[in-house]
Design a binder for these strands. Structure first.
Lengths: 211, 211
DNA sequence: GTTCCTATTGGACCAAGGTCCAATTAACCT
DNA sequence: AGGTTAATTGGACCTTGGTCCAATAGGAAC
């Protein structure tokens, strides 16, 4: 069975790193091993999709710190932690920060593979959502400020005439802007435009009372 | 400072239970103490909003099992776990199941209060969303099957004429159903209807290619 | 200065949505 | 059998949205 996503493995213990790499490769994953957190940070390409198997205790930068660094960089790579000495506060911190799992040695091959499988799935889903959101926001920034104003009024369901008075102009002008918004956003229908706004987190100019 | 939400505390150690109750009360929370998980399950009213402070190790039903029970009952009460002997697998399981925090003794008053504060916040937000979703779904069930069909086509942005041919009827009929859907759902505008569908997780009959 | 972009508006016109009144048919419950 | 609800359709009518063509005005860039 062949999969496309890459599993990044970071562990300072060469033996463990090798063993993990072999296990994951034999399960059909593409694996990129790193012997130190800094090496990973240096050479990691955020564009490549995948998940991260990460040792907690490492010299230099520990696993939790690396997790924070990645979060700051907006890299929402799903992480599976592995650790030698279980430490509850560390595990809780990791999970609160969004880790997929936190395994303590000794763990079975199956445990790791299941965790990696879930991580890959989450990573893929997150990447998909992220990609769509970025695409929409890119289109949104191509709107002029006036078009953005019209946009926010339009998705609140107001009639063109009302939008016009709100913006101090006439219905005809609103129609033109509205058409341009639809075109620039790539929305085939009004319903699509509303859904795009929802996913971008754009609030209607006049929120409805019941929502 | 007075707050409205109740903090449910479950701990089999009378001393700890008393101390926690006093601490939380002095911080302005209404507190409902329980000396056993079963007592909590018996007398807990899901309608009362609040969060749960829960000891992990207890006779009869342990904290994690209680968490599972509550999840099955759809009670999404936010949970803060406290435990004597840190156990990484347990803490990870608890966090994966949605716990807000997992504190190990000894913890400071501040730590607990901060965790409870976050839990209360999450509980309130979840309750709000839940309430709106239930209200909408209740309205949705009041629709006839035909109206539901029309609903799913309408929110995909299709023209009434196309919906009619899809459903094997005429435009006029669709208009009538459409108007009834708007009325029954309490949607003031079409945009509201689309947002309602999004939040209820109702997929359009014809998904748009870019969304 | 000329050009490009943005915002604005007018007019004409068609298609589509929404509403009011009215009516028929079938299924289901009492 | 009689009443209720759901589903269906017709017609008339008005409002709105969308589009095409055309034009003006201000600001920024070259």
């Amino acid at each position: 069975m062949i999969r496309e996503e890459t599993v990044f493995v970071v562990d300072d213990d060469p033996g463990v790193l090798k063993a993990l790499t072999r296990l994951l490769r034999s399960s059909g994953y593409a694996v990129a091993p790193f012997s130190s957190p800094l090496a990973f940070l240096d050479r990691h390409d955020p564009a490549v999709s995948g998940c991260l198997v990460l040792d907690v205790a490492m010299p230099g930068l520990n696993g939790l710190e690396l997790q924070q660094r990645l979060a700051q960089k907006g890299n929402c790579c799903a992480i599976v932690f592995i650790s030698g000495h279980g430490d509850v506060p560390k595990s809780v911190q990791a999970m609160k920060a969004g880790a997929v799992d936190f395994l303590t040695k000794p763990f079975s091959d199956v445990e790791l593979l299941e965790a990696v499988d879930i991580a890959i799935g989450k990573s893929r889903a997150a990447r998909q959502v992220d990609h769509e959101r970025k695409l929409m926001q890119q289109r949104f920034t191509s709107l002029t400020s006036r078009e953005r104003e019209v946009f926010e009024h339009v998705i609140s369901g107001q009639l063109n005439k009302l939008i016009a008075t709100d913006l101090g102009t006439v219905e005809k002008t609103v129609k033109v802007h509205r058409a341009r918004v639809m075109h620039k956003m790539g929305a085939a229908t009004f319903a699509d435009l509303v859904r795009m706004a929802e996913r971008m987190g754009i609030r209607p100019a006049r929120p409805s009372p019941h929502l």
